[in-house]
């Protein structure tokens, strides 16, 4: 490969970069199935916890209902749902996500289910500072057809001392709760839930039927 060829490759690669940058404001996901499905109610399944903090699952499960309901969806109550699962011998998120969509639909009557994985929850200590971070990914699945309607990720980060801020810096939400580390994670989980389940472009959820903005997006 001579210099001219590699130059050409580099040029086309940079053009592609420019193209992809231009495209970032466009919707990245296909909303066709979501629009057609018109889900009214959502069952938020207990999030699978990939962290070492056992509070991650209840911390997210208890706070994801807020943004979803304010977006216009009916949300199955988390505590009641957990009792139903428990009474059926399903105690862990990993067991629960194995339940067939049809069975979930039969019991809870929800149009869609939200499958979530928590990837970060708690504090990380670095050389000069420490951060508390919460991050999760989720997908919305139509319980009538099993098809994925939407997927996304969301996170929130709080840094204890200066330095450059990674992700979204949230101090207001956290200052409201007591200062223990687990509580800081709980406050951040609220913010991460709002980021994860935000409505609107480019990658957000669509408004649900109970929102005055339903059908406008």
């Amino acid at each position: 490969m001579n210099i001219r060829t590699s130059f050409r490759i580099l040029a086309s690669a940079s053009l592609m970069l420019v193209l992809s940058a231009c495209g970032s404001s466009e919707p990245k996901i296909d909303y066709t199935a979501f629009r057609d499905a018109k889900p009214r109610s959502v069952l938020i399944l207990p999030p699978v916890n990939q962290t070492t903090d056992i509070s991650a699952t209840p911390g997210m499960l208890s706070q994801m209902g807020h943004p979803l309901a304010e977006a216009g969806y009916y949300v199955i109550p988390a505590a009641v749902e957990s009792e139903t699962f428990r009474q059926n011998g399903l105690d862990t998120p990993n067991d629960i996500i194995q339940v067939p969509a049809a069975k979930l639909r039969q019991i809870f009557g929800a149009d869609a289910a939200l499958y979530t994985t928590v990837t970060q929850y708690g504090s990380h200590y670095h050389v000069v500072d420490s951060t508390v971070s919460v991050a999760a990914s989720a997908k919305l699945v139509d319980l009538r057809t099993g098809s994925v309607l939407w997927s996304g990720t969301g996170s929130a980060v709080q840094q204890s001392s200066g330095g450059n801020l990674l992700g979204m810096l949230v101090s207001a939400a956290v200052s409201q709760v007591a200062n223990s580390l687990s509580d800081a994670s709980y406050g951040l989980a609220a913010q991460a839930s709002r980021n994860l389940l935000a409505v609107g472009p480019p990658n957000g959820l669509l408004y649900g039927p109970r929102s005055p903005k339903y059908g406008t997006d």
């Binding site: 509070s55 699952t57 209840p58 911390g59 499960l61 208890s62 706070q63 209902g65 807020h66 309901a69 304010e70 216009g72 109550p77 988390a78 505590a79 957990s82 709980y186 609220a190 109970r210 929102s211």
Partner: peptide, 18 residues
């Protein structure tokens, strides 16, 4: 204006789950 008054409901749910 939110659709709902949330109050302590998420916190109560969290306490219940834990």
């Amino acid at each position: 204006r939110p659709l709902y008054y949330w109050g302590n409901y998420p916190d109560q749910t969290y306490a219940y789950l834990k």
